[in-house]
Design a protein around this nucleic acid. Structure first.
Lengths: 224, 224
DNA sequence: TCAAAAGTGTTAGATTTACACCCATGA
DNA sequence: TCATGGGTGTAAATCTAACACTTTTGA
């Protein structure tokens, strides 16, 4: 009997908290569970970790299975392991959050998996401990958002300053002062103004900006 | 065949990063591994998660097994799950960090487990991904330390302001200005000055302070 | 008597916040 | 022409950082 074999094994899964920003709101992808136990309940999308697969790989695989997208920004939230968290069997789940630009997500792919965007404020009761996972993911994501330029992952590559501000407001749940916000943006040279104008949001039109990752890497002073 | 049984199970363990503060340095408890694989290598102390045990319970159990102490401050660091992280079998490990007052730790208990305090700066190469676990634990602990009054868990219940300052300096790896530090402490009414004097650290003696949790709960504005 | 740690305030500079009006355009 | 969102600067208040000397006492 080896050192290992005197202990018992458990199933390990990953659950994905996919954040998107749309209509000025922070949203998360959830769907009705298609299998027992818990069939029909609102739930995060997840999957099991295979024997020959790193947990991060399992999360990437699950993410791209659901979205068709690769190289998404993704971070671990943590492990959730109450004995009875899953009503069927003992399953330890590792939660990950990811950020996507809603426009990159093919509606057909979304429908095939029958998941939908739901406002993070006002989520229904979800399967198992998924509400708790989302709470923790949101907390971690908020922290990151203050100190790292990850917000751009939730926006098109060209965006207006108002869009960016609305994004920060939605995530932090508080309004920001327009002039102060724009002052801070001006100090960050890696948020580049283009000559392009977006006229979808207003009659006058607003300049489009882009995030220049290379410039950021050279002078990564970000704080919002 | 159930939904679950088509997937494979894995071993899940917990690893404990136990921080202590002694001789003005932040230390961590490590020992020589007593079992194969990796016998003799420096390693964190860990244990397997049992089938009928929450992961947090597994961590508490492992912690009190090692230290003889209960109700320690403990937080999850995250799950570590590379396929080949453990040289023997596939094991996913969930790391936790804990804070203890070195003086509460019975030397005999420590020796029985043959672990020792080692400065977090200048750790040797550890078994598996344990160095990485400690790095992440330290990062998380630093963050918490700024916004929550957890530093007291690393000190005796009565402490001098110099001890407290040295603790913050050791964790953050930078010196602090004595007057500015003390000014901030004065603003926090839940750090109470006693009439007791500690003369072990100086000839003149320094006032001993204590953390009043109840007062903190009533007015929890902490920032250092 | 002197070395070593304890204790104590002030000021300049930096950062943060609050705040209001004109502009351009399409309907 | 007017309603809508885009764009811009200044001043007060707050917070942060820098800085030096006196006290006490045991060796």
């Amino acid at each position: 009997m080896t050192y290992y074999s005197q202990h018992s094994k458990v199933w390990v899964s990953v659950d994905c908290i996919i954040f998107g920003f749309d209509e000025g709101k922070l949203k998360v992808l959830i769907g009705r569970r298609q299998m027992d136990p818990g069939r029909g309940e609102w739930s995060l999308y997840g999957g099991f970790v295979a024997a020959d697969e790193n947990i991060d790989e399992a999360a990437s695989r699950t993410l791209s299975e659901l979205t068709g997208l690769r190289n998404l920004y993704m971070r671990q939230v943590g492990a959730f392991g109450s004995v009875d968290r899953d009503p069927g069997e003992r399953v330890i789940s590792i939660a990950y959050y990811a950020l996507i630009n809603v426009k990159d997500y093919d509606e057909r792919v979304r429908m095939e998996h029958s998941v939908e965007w739901m406002d993070v404020n006002g989520l229904p009761k979800l399967y198992s401990d998924h509400n708790e996972m989302i709470r923790k993911a949101l907390k971690l994501m908020r922290q990151k958002l203050r100190t790292e330029p990850i917000g751009f992952r939730l926006l098109p590559s060209l965006f207006t300053l108002t869009q960016l501000q609305r994004l920060y407001e939605a995530v932090n749940g508080e309004e920001l002062d327009k002039r102060n916000f724009r002052k801070r943006i001006k100090d960050m040279d890696f948020i580049e103004k283009t000559e392009l104008i977006d006229k979808t949001g207003s009659k006058r039109g607003a300049y489009l900006f882009r995030f220049n990752r290379k410039a950021y890497n050279e002078d990564p002073n970000f704080k919002l």
